[in-house]
Design a protein around this nucleic acid. Structure first.
Lengths: 136, 136
DNA sequence: ACTTACTGTTTGTTATAAAGAACACTAACA
DNA sequence: TGTTAGTGTTCTTTATAACAAACAGTAAGT
């Protein structure tokens, strides 16, 4: 849920609700509501304002939406084609794809120990890829 | 701007405002406002409802970068087909790909400061992806 | 004990997101 | 010509997002 994400990032930064609310420019009462999931439909502007001082972004705060089911036994060319088409429309180049393919094949991706400035952004359950976020 | 993205995807799907509004479950008047950027602060729920029938997601609709040019479908398709085929043969799942696609779109990838346990493994010049290696 | 300064919560109240029309404008067709 | 069905746009209203302020709780200081 979105509230947990914000709270987690906030505490990781050592911010209080009041502090983050000030930095973000939203009311602390509203931030409190959002963190407790009593208000689960904030606007984009509020989300963006909250994400900024957390050095995060909306997509991460939104967390993972469940991936569509995968039929593992057969490769549907049409389905792949649709996926690729959307990806290309959204800006994926062949070079991107090749790089990612190599990334998938490498089995070097493991859980972070959590004591560094690196933390996991999200973990796809249907994939062995873990998306990272470098926290500067 | 967010309105242009929605409109572009909508027209690509051949949907009218009314049709998309019905599929998304939002009012067509509000969708019209959003597309014309007269309402630039919709809620997350509305954004999610709009993104779904467009086979997109919020993060893309929010994206700042201009839409890439779309190449000729036929040439692209064959070339992509070969790439995908090889990738699938090598074990790439659709989930893998979707995860990677999200990875590309997120603009959170920055150079490592070098003081952590993370270092860059390699950098593909044909891609904007930086492959990382977590050193446990 | 009584501040002072935090923490996060709960109260109203106000501003506005979002709906549900009604509206104007086409094109197709009887 | 009038009617129907489609497009997208404006109205008007209502539901609620978001605020400001008051509130309770804790810890440190006097």
């Amino acid at each position: 849920m979105i509230g947990e994400r914000i709270k987690s990032l906030r505490e990781k930064k050592g911010y209080s609700i009041t502090k983050l609310a000030d930095l973000a420019g939203v009311s602390k009462s509203y931030l409190s509501y959002i963190e407790r999931n009593m208000q689960n439909n904030p606007s984009l502007q509020v989300m963006a304002k909250i994400a900024a001082p957390l050095d995060s972004n909306i997509e991460y705060l939104l967390g993972e939406e469940p991936l569509p089911k995968i039929h593992e036994d057969e490769i549907l060319d049409d389905e792949w084609r649709l996926i690729i088409k959307n990806a290309v429309d959204e800006g994926m180049s062949k070079g991107d794809f090749q790089a990612l393919k190599d990334l998938i094949r490498s089995n070097m991706w493991k859980e972070s120990k959590g004591e560094t400035s690196v933390y996991f952004n999200e973990k796809k359950k249907t994939s062995n890829i873990i998306i990272l976020h470098i926290d500067n």
